[in-house]
Nucleic acid binder design. Sequence first.
DNA 1: GCCGATTCTCTACGGCTGTAGTGGATCGAA
DNA 2: TTCGATCCACTACAGCCGTAGAGAATCGGC
Lengths: 216, 216
Amino acid sequence: MTTAKRSPDRPDRLVLIGDTAIRLLVERGMRGLTHRAVDEAAGLPAGSTSYYARTRVALLEVALARMTVLEAGEFAPALAAGDLPPALPGDVEGVADMAATIVSEAIREGRAQKIARYELALEATRRPELRGMYDGAGVAFREAAVAMVAALGSPEPARHGRFLVAWCEGVMFDAIAGAGWATPPSRADIRTGIAELLTGMLGDTARRPRPKSPNE
Amino acid sequence: MTTAKRSPDRPDRLVLIGDTAIRLLVERGMRGLTHRAVDEAAGLPAGSTSYYARTRVALLEVALARMTVLEAGEFAPALAAGDLPPALPGDVEGVADMAATIVSEAIREGRAQKIARYELALEATRRPELRGMYDGAGVAFREAAVAMVAALGSPEPARHGRFLVAWCEGVMFDAIAGAGWATPPSRADIRTGIAELLTGMLGDTARRPRPKSPNE
DNA sequence: GCCGATTCTCTACGGCTGTAGTGGATCGAA
DNA sequence: TTCGATCCACTACAGCCGTAGAGAATCGGC
């Protein structure tokens, strides 16, 4: 009942502040994100951001909360459509194809959002208040990965899901903020890479109990 | 001849400033790295950092240069000892073992340094001056990875080397700054994961030319 | 022992930062 | 319509920031 009533036509100020904070984080980094800069960039009256987010950590929380919503919105269609987990025990290619789409788009259209996310991840390293919010944000995505590798027949879905996500994160970081920024991998390369990773995970223990060398 | 002569006993001020800047980057983030903070944290007379690094970007360059030296020092023993590339065409386990050691140590003892590196990578996103220096820093490491997978028999060493490094980076980021910070993977898990990735890479194209589905 | 050049210390300055408080505008209930 | 409460715009303030320059200290050649 404290913040329940708002006129529905006005795009909630906190959303605007959150979006602008994310934009500043991307364009100017953590040093460029200030209360006054948000006011200016968002075209808000001076002091507005300082009112809605009284302290700096509150401002970071607004940005992180907004980013959580944005990221959830990205995966919502795929998750809601029941596409994952694909549930076909051997469909490595299908999973690789879908994951490659996500990663490839994250590198290109989603580049800015990823930079903001990295910035907040680093900040969460030093601010316990942000840690919980950050960790909670990607939990649905990570659980989907675990469910997916489990459906593929992984004998260790927890570890395999975690490493699958880590592979994707590493490719994204390299392409967005790392040395690979100038030559981001093609969607096809990513797809092949994920397929190789999955094949290695499933082939070693699931399909072949132990014999390490191929049969010929 | 401009900066050639220095009394050899004094630990070069720039090294001390660089080390301290890295420490501040880890402990307080980009907003905590300031000329005055370095002076104070390093016990230098007020204004020293501002003299050695006249501008802010100069200070970041000092930190990045120092980090490049530190990281080179870590891999120097292994590289100098001729351990890599191991050069045995099928020695997946050996390579996985060595890489797992590097990653596992980076997560634990090297955690702080990695945080500083991420911080600078993000900054390089916005500062072209830092970009070249950052990209050049890890080039030896990445080339070693390419040489290694080539020695293992990879038909696409460039792509495979890149993705191997990306996998490692992803695992490290997750364990250091991501949601996996509370439960970092064990060295054994990392070793297994790398072995799976390499098996998938080499098995799919090298050992079997084309037939995509298993033969049964 | 002297002196010019280099190396360093210290201080100044305009500008930006986080945060809090004050007073006016707006809204819903009576 | 009146009035209390909420929402918001604006201002104040103490402190820290990057950067530049003036002068002291130190060093090496003579």
